[in-house]
Design a binder for these strands. Structure first.
Lengths: 249, 249
DNA sequence: TAGTGGTCTAGACCACATG
DNA sequence: ATGTGGTCTAGACCACTAT
C-alpha cells in the first residue's frame, strides 16, 4: 500500500515547536501584538500538552530568547546591550557551537606531532601518540586585522579520518563528526590571559608581549574522550569574550 | 492548636532531592556500588513521581555532576581534568553565583563616583548619577598571593540601601538582594585580556604591563536594569577561567 | 528481550503578579 | 478575582543499550 501520510518528522515535538517559535521571534512576529503567547494558548494552537510547550519554552529560555515570570507571563528578550562592536557573544552550548559553525577558518595541515605538554596538562590529558596538527588564522572582514590564531590537534585514532579534512570547508570538529563517526558531547574551555610570544605577536599584528586571550578548548565525545583540542589566541585589544547567564531559581 | 507537623520546607521537592543527591555524589557514596540509581529506584526510594526525579537529575546534569544516556543509565561524571591547580570552574548560572556566594571578599567603601566611562560603555549603560563604589582584593589562602582585584559599583537608586552593606560579610549583590529588595535575574560577563596598569600591577604583585584577565560583570534585575557592575582583574599567570558546556541535542 | 532514559498526555494544586 | 508560570502526579509509548 502506498503510504499517503508522510512520516518525515524525526525531531521531538517540543524541538519542532521551539524551532517554529524561534523563527517567529527572530522574524519579529510578536513585536506588534500583545507579546508572546501564553502556555495555554500555545497548547491549543499546536495541539500539544503543556509539557511539550514547556519543554520548547525551556529551550528558548536557555538560548536567551525569552524570559518567563510567574504571574506575569513570557516576554521576548531584547537583543540589546550589544554595545561594544567587537564582541563575540556566546551564551549556551548551541551558541558556542554556532560560533564555530557560522565562521569559517582557513586551516593548513601541519603534519603529526605530539601534543604540546602545557596544553595536554591543562586539558588533563596524558601525552600519547601523534596528533594531527592544523593551524589557521581568522581575520575581521572589514579591516583584515586578525582576531584569532588557532592551533587544533586531532586525536591519533582519528588522524586517519582527519586526513580527509578539507581545509577550506567548515570547522574541524564538524568534519570529524561527519567522517569519523564521533559526536561532540561536551566542550570544556579554559580562558587565560597570556603575553604574546614573538611568533604569535607577529601573526596577530600586535606588539610582542602584549596581552592575549588564550582559549583552550577540548571537544569530548560520549565516552568522555577528548578527540580534538584547540588553542586560540586573540588580541586583547580587539577581542572580548562575552556571555550571559540566566538565573533560573 | 499546636501544630505538630512541621511545615518548614519551602524549597520544591526536586531541589531538595537534587541537594540530597549532590551531597551523596560529592561524598563519593555511589563510587563503591553499582553506580548511580535508576529513575525508577529514586522514585520509589523518595516517594516522588518520575517528573520530580527527572527535574532533580536535570539540575545535577546542568551542574556537570552526572551524565545520562538512554539505554545505559546515569553515570557520575568524574571530577577529572582538574589538572591545573588554580582553576576557577564555572559552568552554569548557579555555579557563577556559587563562585560569588562561597567566597568572601574584604571590601572597602570608596564613596560615590560616576561610573567609569569605559566600563559603562562596555556594559551598554548610559552614564547617570553617582554610583557607590567598593573595591576589594582576594588572595589565595595558601600563599597569600592575590588572584583578584575587584571594583564594584552599585546603582544610584540603591546607593542608600548599599550604605548598610557590611564589608566583611557576603558579596555585595547578595546583600543587595537582602536589603534593597532586588534579585539577580541575569548576569552578563565580558572577558578580555588587558595589560596591568601600574596601580593594578602593584596590588596584584605582578610586573607592570603583564597580562591580566579582566572580567566585567553586570548584575541585572527582573526589569533588565543593571543594579551592580563589577570589574575584576586577575593575574594571567595564576588564574584561569574554566567552564564546561554540555551538548544537549 | 529487558531495562534504561527520552518524550508526551491529561489532569491537579500552588505562588505570584496584575487588574 | 483572574490568569500566569512553577511544581507535581500517574500513567503511557518509544528509542536506545545491553545481555
Amino acid at each position: 500500500m502506498a503510504s499517503t501520510a508522510e512520516k518525515v518528522e524525526r525531531k521531538p515535538r517540543y524541538l519542532e515547536l521551539a524551532d517554529l517559535l524561534r523563527a517567529d521571534i527572530l522574524a519579529g512576529r510578536f513585536d506588534d501584538t500583545d507579546g508572546f503567547p501564553t502556555e495555554a494558548v500555545l497548547c491549543e494552537e499546536h495541539g500539544v500538552s503543556r509539557f511539550t510547550v514547556r519543554e520548547a519554552l525551556r529551550k528558548l529560555q536557555s538560548e536567551g530568547l525569552i524570559k518567563r515570570r510567574r504571574g506575569s507571563g513570557t516576554m521576548i528578550q531584547p537583543a540589546s546591550a550589544r554595545a561594544g562592536a567587537l564582541h563575540q557573544p556566546l551564551s549556551n552550548v548551541d551558541e558556542i557551537l554556532q560560533y564555530a559553525r557560522d565562521t569559517q577558518f582557513m586551516f593548513k595541515e601541519r603534519g603529526r606531532v605530539t601534543l604540546p605538554k602545557k596544553y595536554a596538562e591543562q586539558a588533563g590529558l596524558e601525552i600519547s601518540g601523534k596528533w594531527l596538527h592544523f593551524s589557521g588564522i581568522r581575520t575581521q572582514t572589514h579591516d583584515g586585522l586578525p582576531i584569532a590564531l588557532t592551533d587544533a590537534y586531532v586525536h591519533p585514532e582519528l588522524a586517519e579520518a582527519a586526513q580527509k579534512i578539507e581545509t577550506a570547508r567548515s570547522t574541524i570538529f564538524q568534519q570529524l563528526e561527519e567522517h569519523a563517526g564521533v559526536s561532540v558531547s561536551r566542550v570544556t574551555q579554559d580562558i587565560q590571559a597570556v603575553a604574546a610570544t614573538a611568533a604569535i605577536a607577529d601573526q596577530l599584528k600586535v606588539p610582542r608581549r602584549s596581552p592575549c586571550l588564550r582559549i583552550l578548548r577540548s571537544y569530548l565525545d560520549d565516552s568522555g574522550r577528548a578527540f580534538e583540542i584547540s588553542v586560540s589566541h586573540h588580541p586583547g585589544h580587539r577581542f572580548a569574550y562575552s556571555m550571559h547567564i540566566d538565573v533560573d531559581s
